[in-house]
Amino acid sequence: MVPKRLSYPCLGDVPALFINVINARSKRKQLFQMLVDTGASHTSIPASFASSFGHDNTAPDVATTEVNGIGGKSLAYIHTLRVELIDPQAKTWAKLVSPWRSPKLPVLFIDKMDTQIGLLGRDILQRWSGIAFLPGSDAKGQGGTRSWTITIEL
């Protein structure tokens, strides 16, 4: 079987994708930018965004855990969701058909994560056949701004 290859242009110099984040309980779907982060073992989102995905970090039945990162230890709230790639070739919103959707996954909503985007970790990346990061041709010399294209092989 020929693998399906999807190429996504990135916003600015951050190798991140817009993906659908789907609340597993309500099926509510929202687009959010996620850094493709091979260094993260788990997919993570800043805790401050939980309510915008229909999750409540203060609900009594929410499980928590402690995570470690560059910034040290932090509390993380665990919510269940799915993520979905969007078709990078579709011409219009009406013609979008998702080429891939994850099963329900526990995702970490991290208290001390002070970023404006989430991290797509290895718990999701390992489900794809391949990932490539292609620098754009707009490099302005060493250390200059680049654009990126992310290619995913399913």
């Binding site: 242009p9 990135c10 687009l31 078709d87 990078p88 579709a90 011409k91």
Partner: peptide, 12 residues
């Protein structure tokens, strides 16, 4: 222009 390219542009 694809939908995804438009999304990136409008987001920026």
């Amino acid at each position: 222009m694809t939908y995804y390219e438009q999304l990136v542009q409008h987001a920026a």
